[in-house]
Design a protein around this nucleic acid. Sequence first.
DNA 1: GACCCGTGGGG
DNA 2: TCCCCAAGGGT
Length: 398
Amino acid sequence: MANDAGAVYLGRRMTTTADPRRLRKLLLEHYDAHRRDLPWRKNQEPYRVWVSEIMLQQTRVETAIPYYNRWMERFPTVEALADVDEESVLKAWEGLGYYSRARNLHRSARLVRERLGGVLPEDSQSLKKLPGIGEYSAGAIASIAYGEVVPAVDGNVRRVLSRLFDLEDPTASTLRDRAGELVDPDRPGDWNQALMELGATVCTPRAPRCTECPVSEGCCARAEGTQESRPILKRRPKVPTVFYDVLVVANPVGELLMVRRPPDGLLGGLWEFPSVERDGEGRSGRSLDDQCRKRLEELAVRLPAHPVRSSVLPEVRHAFTHFKAVYSPTLFDYTQSRDEEAMGPPQIESRDHPVRWVAPYQAEQLPLPVSQRRIFELARAVRVERAQIRTLCSDGLA
DNA sequence: GACCCGTGGGG
DNA sequence: TCCCCAAGGGT
């Protein structure tokens, strides 16, 4: 019974489709008839499969598609990816989130070039050694690209199997065992994709479309009427809110001061405006001008005078997975005296320093988190508006 | 096993 | 507005 894939259900109900052979036949036929036409399904070239699987981690198919197409045009091969710098890679990933995926993809590409002769590992165990490839992705890539008979258990598969066998909260090893017994030995890649696609399109988290399901006749949860509550879902804990004062400092040439975040961790390697965290109630401690001065000193930006606060920009809210951020940006305009003008725009100490004056056209080439992109647009809009007003005034006077 | 790591769409 | 969640991995 243990290895019979649920054919005996509590000794009461014999489920026909729980016979692995019949289950495979029914689901693969359904897959062949309904499979979506996705860009990474054009062929099974390993690099293409690899990139798609990384992009699809915790990401919807519809979201990933445009990124995938652009990526393949820009970095068509492992070598092409290994050749570019990390900033270009992050730029191509901008807006997709979980940026460590992009950094790991890039690291892996270089590792493959330098240690593996430019050839991707061809089995799941070796694939799993690359950064960014875990249990699921190793199985998915190996089965799709190389035809290895291994399972690939993602969130979809977990849900589908939980319902098929009416499991409340199966452990990872239980699922791996169940999934392993079911994999079609002749079409492992198609089988894994069929299972995932069923979960994404039919066996959905809420309101599953059981009437359209090719294997509903063998579904234990359906028989028990428990499909809506399998697997059990846990409440997501409430997340804290963090408030930031954001300093948008403009030099006389109209460039804005930006800093690069540390290479790892949250939004690692992306650019942002200097900011200062407030206290839990969202109150500022010292005065904004004071903070601005202090922060610029920390960043080792040499300025001939203190910036003049010019206007408060609209608040920007952003929800991360484990906290909410509220950014309160203030625009500081840097004015220079006649004497200072001769010195040119304020200089930044070192070239390697992760701090830069960024002109609007340059900002388009930097990888920015979504929130910072919004703040940048707000600041640009204000400055453009002011320039127009100045033009109108001087015209009026002339 | 718990926690960290983004973002956008849908109910 | 809020909550849910989506082809997970690293530490």
